[in-house]
Nucleic acid binder design. Sequence first.
DNA 1: GCGGACTGCTTACCT
DNA 2: ACAGGTAAGCAGTCCGCG
Length: 853
Amino acid sequence: MAEKAKEFYFSPDAPRNLSMAYLLSATYEGERRTACLKLYEPESRKIYFWYDNTKHQPYCLSDAPIGELKRIEALVKHQGFDHFETVEKFDALNDRETEMTKIIARDPRSIGGRPSGTIRDLIQKSWEARIKYYESYIYDRQLSIGTPYVIKEEKLIPVDCSTLKKDLNAPERFFKNEEKEFQAYIGQWIRLLECPVPEFSRLALDIEVYSPVVTRVPDPRTASESIVAASLVDSDGNKRVLVLKRPGIGEGGTAVPQGVKIEYYDREEDMLIEVFKALLAYPIVLTFNGDSFDLRYLFHRAEKLGFPRESIPIRLEEIFALLKYGVHIDLYRFFLNRSIQIYAFGQKYREATLDGIANAILNVGKIALEQPISELTYTELANYCLRDAELTMQLTTFDDSLVMKLIITIARISRMPIEDVTRQGVSRWIRSMMFFEHRRLNWLIPRSEDIIELKGSTATEAIIEGKKYRGAIVIEPKPGVHFNVFVLDFASLYPSIIKHWNLSYETVRCPHSECENNKIPGTPHWVCKKRSGMTSLVIGTLRDLRVNWYKPKSKDKNQSPAMRSWYNVIQQSLKVILNASYGVFGAEVFDLYCPPVAESTAAIGRYAITETVRKAEALGINVVYGDTDSVFLENPSQAQINEVVEWSREFLGMDLDTDKIYRYSAFSSRKKNYLGVYPSGSVDIKGLTGKKRNTPDFLKIAFAEMISILGEVESSEDFDEAKSRIREVVKTCYLKLKNGKYSLDDLAFNVMISKPIESYTKTTPQHVKAAKLLVKNEVEVKPGEIISFVKTKTQEGVKPVQLASVKEIDADKYMGYIKSTFEQVLDAIGIDFDEITGFTKLEHFLWNFEGQR
DNA sequence: GCGGACTGCTTACCT
DNA sequence: ACAGGTAAGCAGTCCGCG
């Protein structure tokens, strides 16, 4: 077995000379004790390993001089200790140059990679000891993940991307008004971001496992059951399904797609070898939940069947499953990332399941199963398994490989290996980007505890109990209908503030007494006047790039559609990073956590919007609403707008733009709750129940009908007609409800259960009650699932749709919902719900009477 | 023992 | 494991009521 497995394992060491290859990831190679880079060469479509030959070694830093450290016997005798060096670093926190001792080790685990007995533990204070070795390597060598390199005589040399794309030298001319240093810096970013991205040859993998108990998901740690099918779909369109022969199973059902032929195996071992061959044949392997299931199961199953470890091309970590040869991307983890979900895909999908995401993005779902896996015919099993791999692949191929480009772009910005960038959150991306910058400038990376100790905590009080500091302001809406409303907003407010006010962990509450008068409005904090902050520089640059370069280019009709969409990917990636750039400073998990920075940003935001409202009102403009970074102005003249915008640029130093214009907008007295009708008649809806995703479909549909009526309203006179049409909509809806015309699905509330059922200890919300009923009926319920339930007249008051019948529906409860949903809008346009429906007590009686007949 | 006022929990949303 | 602010509905509790 070992021999057979070994024959397909090839050694991908890079040759002495290699033409252009893209750097995808970095790891530590334990046997050779060096950093190892994975490079993708697009011509051969192979991964090559390049091992460090610059004698780079792992290290951490100490503020004690060498002489002092030499006296620590356990340190100099530590088996991982190599030698000391003295280095100069800039200590930004204290604004001084400082001498540090580099404690250089033979292997990374000796520094801090073990629970105990590490070098880190032997010294009083250590710096940069918690950075993974391969990260440290990337930063020290200033490597750009996702960009091309060549190898010449074993040396790794970056390719100048402007030789690949001529106009990459143009940016300096565009940003000619900026300072020289800034121009050069922004130019570097543009060359990094716009460097061409190759097509990546890749494979999607999915496996199916036999399960004796239908309701139990097979456990990958024990891997006690057979893998009965595996599907392999690649980016060239090749599709394979491998199926294990089992007694008593036959073919039957819909045939597998044309061009696909089921490959049968008598022995599971032979099938696994075929899967492993495929894992070694592709530079990138995609799975959906492969970290926790597919690759983990394959690994343990192979071990169980007697495969020697070295013949298994998978490297298991605690939570991740990586590949020895290529790069494994677990799309489940990538799509689960909140920033990706919200900012890159605009909340298109709710549940992070293959079925949920594929349905939302690709309009295709998984194959629905009528029977458990173990009872399917070979053909049914093959089809099912194949679909999963197809969907997994399509999640990276749709829109001209949007997802691959997004991943590469974020990897470029964050300086993170592809494996990490697809598995970690935005706070880790920003951490990595900032650490890279520290090493570029030879700054000491500060210790988190030192930042907290020096900068202290926050000074403002949050409105929400339990929060750390005060956030944004929402301006009280002026209820009613307002025509010709201009919405002005600050282009990326918080990043602009960070740039313009020089905010950074080292500049806020800096050590200079002469800066203390440079106060941040609404706080006791001050900001440095002598040095420019690193965060301010980095985030400011990314902001300028997005606002002044990529966003316009993504809409520029002179660019080809392909280029526009590429600029859009870059613009989106920047947005994801920028949106989180303020929040991370208020998040404990962030290594540069600095509450006064986040607090100051929010405080300046409040200052900016309040002053803007004051200015607008002083000019005689009616401000009808505003939230965080926007003001809604009723029927302003162009001259008035110009004046506010001009004032903002001069007085606040920030760009205020007209974001949108409404023919009219309608507010109730509720904040974050309004509708605005564009001149085209399309309607912008914010926060209204009728649009929320947990609202039953029948209500959403009726609500949409009302909205389309309101979209046709041109002037205040039109409201009379609209009113009577809306009345009909509500009445029809109510009648259909009473007459039982809506199906259970129409009536279902769809609420996500965010925790395991047992952890709802304080209260039992309705969706949890419904979930409990499901569990009672042996339906598994997992966190993150959407529970669909209807309101019933039964004991619990709710029932999951699967178990309910139309007869049990509590129509009165639903009537209350119709009322509250419509009221949010009717309030705003000055119509009373009971008046519009004409529901006098007598009529109520009559409706009920009719409903019963 | 009952119902209204209140608080706290939970979800979904806005920026 | 980016942040805080807001709305809504329901669960559960308190309190008055001869």
